[in-house]
Write a protein that binds this DNA or RNA. Structure first.
Lengths: 339, 339
DNA sequence: TTGTAGGCGTTATCAG
DNA sequence: CTGATAACGCCTACAA
């Protein structure tokens, strides 16, 4: 059975394609009678417009692209959830691509999406990204574009972020309030803005509380993994046994830290307090329950899509559009690891 | 700057659109000279074919749809990862939709994908799905279609599964080997085939070991959540204090069980052993580390895409295609919760 | 109120 | 080897 087309409907009804098209799109200049006939037939044949043809005519696909570092990741999958949900509400579908934290792949994925002619792109930079050229290309082509989480400050596009510096400041202040005097930081890779900002927040909190900043207490993740957490925990225990607080770039790594401390029987929070970042589900079920900073991931997704939608609509209507940055709130969540 | 088209290239070169098209597609019947000229110009203008037009002509979009119950889910996000990766290798993009375990949404999502005219669809049924009509519709339209994990035995399509009954049998046998005599089962909802099969595997293992089956020891999840795990653990402790083993439908719920047992100081594995299913990352970092059944999620994704690709290719070439079912291996992973 | 005609950009057929 | 022509299915001025 071939697909139903306007032409077939027109022929069986003995009218023109134009009229059928108009009737289906509820144009005012179709008689009630023919309109009904068309709608009835279309319905009984379960006609659906050929989206390929519609795309070609209207030059839009009602599809957006999303590029993220990893899908198997509590934070990112929650953002995906938000984006897909919001997109669907507005009649958009979402194509997802992973950069796997590689700049090269990220560029390739952008190209795939542009060739696919998606109506817009949402992305979070890979950790490797220190080069803007591929993104500037998107801007040049005037493809609606929104960044979230790991952004580039230099790109003039809409963004959805949290105040990483402030959030980190609050996390470290929390440790200090609980009595920590010597606080290590396991930070993220060198490139991402949010790793930099969290590091700065850490420094500021120390400063504010007259705790000397010691660069030796800062450990830099390369891959941001559970294993790195274990490794750095081991180093901290070996090199700085008197560290009594650790602020970790993200929960996954913090869980690695806890895992190592548990293994060698270093008591958390008695000997050392640990706080993570992002509030992964896992954090509330491990022992001890991990304190962390809550980051509204689902809302980041919905906000990112809404910003993109504004821009896509502005483009369609040829109205002007000013980029915006939405900053979402975070909260320190105190649990057993910082009691 | 408007998009480059074949027409523009043809005009600037003073040749016909046809020739340009052929040159770009490496047809044999174009002179080396013109071919070079075309390729050079196309490249310098960074021409990319308009995929909308290509779609319309070729009637394929090189896009597939994926419907899963939830994105924020360790197992499903790993499958997504496998599918996206494999699809990309073969030049396909993936649109992801969530059914949120609702039959109604699942139907809607199928329709969205069919209207979008994706080249194929991969899906895992929602827990609510007890009705096949929307899926038969896909089959009727001869849209390449593959199911994985939560499948319907009645639908004649390609499938990627594990042997849930056997895997559950092995998990429960493991508990028995470790000395459990009275084993409870927290099972999945009533509809999904895999919940049924795991339950059957549980029963068989009891039978084989001459342990009487007691339906009172079977608890049925509705939403398959952490909270349900806690709740059923509480019920088990209250109603059947002598239960010494629990086989749980999936790790997330099993973690809830452990959380409750930890809270009320019921010792795992000394008083009661617990084994989960699916090998979520979380399972290896909680206390005690959770024994479970490993399920090759990434491979399920790649296998599912490959099956779909076979079917899509067969459809294109009009060659016959016979559906296949791929069964992947599972392994019991013994950890501290069943020591 | 209805229909004609042209075009979106590409591909395929067939004639020169 | 090259090109004219006709689709693919839909939309939309513009006529009638």
């Amino acid at each position: 059975m071939r697909d139903i087309t306007l032409k077939q409907i027109a022929e069986t009804l003995g009218i023109s394609i134009t009229t059928v098209s108009k009737a289906l799109k509820n144009y005012p200049d179709v008689s009630a009678k023919t309109k009904k006939a068309v709608l009835d037939l279309a319905h009984s044949l379960s006609y659906t417009p050929n989206s390929f043809a519609v795309n070609l005519r209207t030059k839009e696909s009602r599809t957006i692209g999303l590029i993220i570092p990893e899908v198997v990741h509590h934070f990112f999958s929650s953002v995906i959830n938000g984006i897909i949900d919001e997109a669907e509400k507005h009649g958009y579908l979402v194509i997802i691509l992973q950069s796997s934290e590689s700049l090269e792949l990220e560029k390739k994925q952008m190209e795939l999406l542009m060739n696919k002619r998606v109506d817009g792109i949402i992305m979070s930079l890979s950790n490797e990204s220190n080069d803007d050229e591929h993104i500037r290309e998107v801007m040049r082509k005037e493809i609606p574009f929104v960044m979230f989480d790991k952004i580039s400050k230099l790109i003039p596009c809409s963004k959805v972020i949290i105040n990483d510096q402030k959030a980190a400041f609050e996390a470290v202040s929390h440790l200090i309030q609980k009595g920590c005097k010597k606080i290590a930081h396991i930070r993220g890779p060198v490139n991402p803005q949010n790793a930099i900002d969290r590091f700065l927040g850490y420094k500021k909190a120390l400063e504010k509380n007259n705790i000397p900043y010691d660069p030796k207490l800062v450990y830099t993740c390369k891959n941001v993994t559970f294993e790195e957490g274990r490794l750095f925990a081991e180093q901290i225990a070996a090199e700085h046994a008197d560290v009594d607080g650790v602020f970790v770039i993200t929960d996954l790594v913090a869980v690695g830290v806890l895992d190592y401390f548990n293994e060698v029987n270093i008591k958390v929070p008695q000997q050392v307090r640990v706080i993570g970042f992002s509030n992964w589900f896992m954090s509330q079920v491990i022992t001890p329950k991990l304190s962390t900073v809550n980051q509204p991931s689902f809302e980041m997704g919905t906000a990112a899509f809404r910003l993109l939608l504004e821009e896509m609509n502005a483009k369609k209507d040829m109205t002007s559009f000013k980029t915006r940055t939405i900053e979402l709130e975070t909260q320190v969540i105190a649990r057993d690891s910082t009691l």
